[in-house]
Write a protein that binds this DNA or RNA. Structure first.
Lengths: 218, 218
DNA sequence: ACAAATATTTAGTTTTGTCTAAAAATTAAT
DNA sequence: ATTAATTTTTAGACAAAACTAAATATTTGT
């Protein structure tokens, strides 16, 4: 697979959300920052190669083989993201562009050893699950912290209320996007939560927990 | 710079040994596993871009700018080699192909952080020096172990005598290509050497030391 | 110095991935 | 249901990087 082919495969995968959903030529063109006519050419080629199923005017979807390739790319992308954050001190919002390049490096041993070096992580710095070597993996869902059951853990990926006071509160309590949070217990009385974050356990109000999004892999 | 341009720059650099030596079209074609006519096209382009100095029929050399690019590529290549060996348990003879891909990844922060992560190494697993960020670096020379002065350290890169008995001896004494060896002392009487290898000090005969090549950065 | 051998360049194609403009198919609207 | 709007495809071109074959330069040998 060439660089460009791999990029198309990933785009089809992401737009189709993994299933054999069919993706439109225009959507793909927008995602790839290219023109629909270029997309038509490429999906014809991918189809001939057995990577995609393409019916003129009816959109394109990945074949089983194509999905395997997509999952391998996603695996590599996310492993490299973990590497960049855990080993090279990148912040979670700096990694994407570099991982986008690194995911195309071809070496099975490299990926296997990288996985081992990182301690076989199962989610990337954005809380998205890392497919196994065989391509198995869980789906991630985004939920408000308040909505998840006790025992759940996930990555903090966003805020509902982005007002200055709330952000200031988070900062003061050292809660940042990208942090892994586990719900330890709930207080029946006021709906407040005991959460584990960066090895420490803290107590946050129901209101706080209602404004933090967690990405969890179900 | 495109992938291909970067590969040509590296090839010109390596054939020209860094100086502003002029490299012939044919030599470059052989190195790049391509045809002379393709080389002519490319060196014209590199010349127009200010990367190389090209006079028809007179060969090509790197401009100062081109040499800077070459050194940056060599730096990245060698840092990745260290990474593969030190962190991912690759053996010294497996790293080249993968490093050849990794050296093209574009991210200044990535290289800086990788350097730091590896503890600012100054040679790669083959004993070749790693250029600094500014492009400064020492030359490596290959010498017989017996020829280097006391105190010198380098990487074991080859044998002069490749007979089975000698190789068996090396194996028994856990001396392998890629090992770092330091000359601790010499015995005046018989010219034998005390060397440090893998944290241990061992004593080897003059004859052994006369058949081991060391790469040292002078 | 001149012919032969070698090295290099030019000219014309090919492939990959892109583009624009025009044509055709599909979908939406009255 | 027929026209209008949108989407998609086709046709023809282009740039990058390679190739083959032919034409020039240069170097070598006598």
């Amino acid at each position: 697979m060439t660089l460009s082919e791999e990029d198309y495969i990933k785009a089809i995968y992401h737009l189709g959300k993994g299933e054999n959903t069919t993706v439109s030529t225009n959507a793909l063109a927008e995602q790839m920052h290219t023109k629909p006519s270029s997309v038509t050419d490429m999906i014809k080629k991918l189809s001939e190669k057995g990577v995609a199923n393409y019916k003129p005017y009816k959109g394109v979807s990945l074949s089983e083989y194509g999905e395997k390739i997509a999952l391998s790319l996603v695996r590599k992308h996310r492993l490299w993201e973990v590497f960049l954050v855990d080993k090279l001190d990148f912040s979670w919002d700096e990694v994407h562009e570099v991982a986008e390049q690194l995911e195309h490096i071809k070496s099975e041993k490299l990926v296997d050893q990288l996985d081992k070096h990182l301690g076989y992580p199962d989610v990337d710095p954005h809380g998205d699950p890392i497919p196994s070597k065989k391509g198995e993996f869980k789906k991630a869902i985004k939920k408000l912290l308040i909505e998840v059951p006790i025992g759940t853990s996930g990555v903090c990926v966003g805020v509902k209320d982005s007002s200055a006071p709330f952000l200031k509160f988070l900062d003061k309590n050292k809660i940042a996007l990208g942090d892994t949070i586990a719900v330890v217990d709930k207080e029946e009385f006021d709906g407040s939560l005991y959460i584990q974050i960066k090895q420490k356990e803290i107590h946050i109000s129901n209101q706080i927990a209602s404004n933090l999004y967690l990405k969890i892999t179900a």
